[in-house]
Simulated scan of single mutants.
Amino acid sequence: MTSTPEPSADGSSAEADDRLIGAHDLALAALQEITPASTIGPAAGYVAEEDGSVSLRFENRLPGYPGWYWTVTVARVDDAEPTVLEVELLPNEGALLAPEWVPWAERLAEYRAHQAELAEQAAAAEAGDADAEGDDATEGDDLDELDEDEDSDEPDILHAGDLDGVDIDELDESGVDEDAESEEVDDSESEDDSDADDADIDDEEE
């Protein structure tokens, strides 16, 4: 079965064999040997190769490969029937591609460098926290000094606990001694007064 020739997918001006361009049935049969028919979309043009072969393209419906195309390269020798050279899934411009492969040694070196950087950042953060805690402790000491200064301005108040170590009996005896001295003074003053009164009586009788 020969299909109507389609424009070249890459816009090349290379001449292509019409029999190769129309070999869609052959290309689809080759594709179905490697992938389910549900993953194959309609024809999406062709690419005329420099060696005279033609790469027929079909839209891809395989999940995870946006912008990719099923590609079947066909060729023919002399007057022979077209034959399949290669079947593959190839990306179009702007297709989602895997990142460029990097050797394991380079990836390991990058990983170690990143880990060392994280360790330095963690150490710097811990040092900053320690400095902040030191500042907070200094501020707390200043506040304690201020509280002590304020307390020193307050008048001394005698509390019950302040009497610990004081001999209450000595305080009582000292009080008794003072009372006895005051009584002796009063008695002496009374005797002096009585003597004076007796002298006055004697003078009057004379």
Rank of each mutant, 00 (worst) to 15 (best):
M1Y: 06
T2I: 07
S3F: 12
T4H: 11
P5I: 10
P7I: 07
S12G: 11
S12Y: 10
S12I: 06
D18N: 08
R19Y: 00
R19S: 06
A23I: 03
A23V: 03
A27S: 04
A29D: 15
T35L: 11
P36Y: 03
G41S: 02
P42Y: 09
P42Q: 15
A48V: 08
A48Y: 06
D51F: 02
D51T: 08
G52F: 01
F58W: 05
E59G: 08
N60M: 00
N60V: 01
G67K: 04
Y69F: 07
W70A: 00
T73Y: 02
A80E: 10
E81S: 09
V84L: 02
L85T: 04
E86L: 09
L90Q: 12
L90H: 01
E93D: 07
G94C: 04
L97C: 00
E100L: 04
W101Y: 05
W101G: 03
E106F: 02
R112C: 03
H114D: 14
A116Y: 08
L118S: 10
E120R: 14
A123H: 12
D129F: 04
A130N: 03
G134C: 06
A137K: 00
L143P: 01
D144H: 01
D147F: 03
E148W: 06
E148V: 02
E150M: 15
D151Y: 03
D151M: 14
E154V: 15
P155V: 10
D156Y: 15
I157Y: 06
L158D: 03
L158A: 11
G161T: 15
G165A: 08
D167Y: 11
D169G: 12
L171I: 15
L171C: 01
G175H: 06
G175V: 10
D179I: 13
A180H: 12
E189Q: 12
E191S: 13
D192C: 06
D193G: 14
D193K: 12
D193Y: 14
S194Q: 15
D195C: 09
D198H: 02
D198I: 04
D200L: 14
D200K: 12
E204G: 03
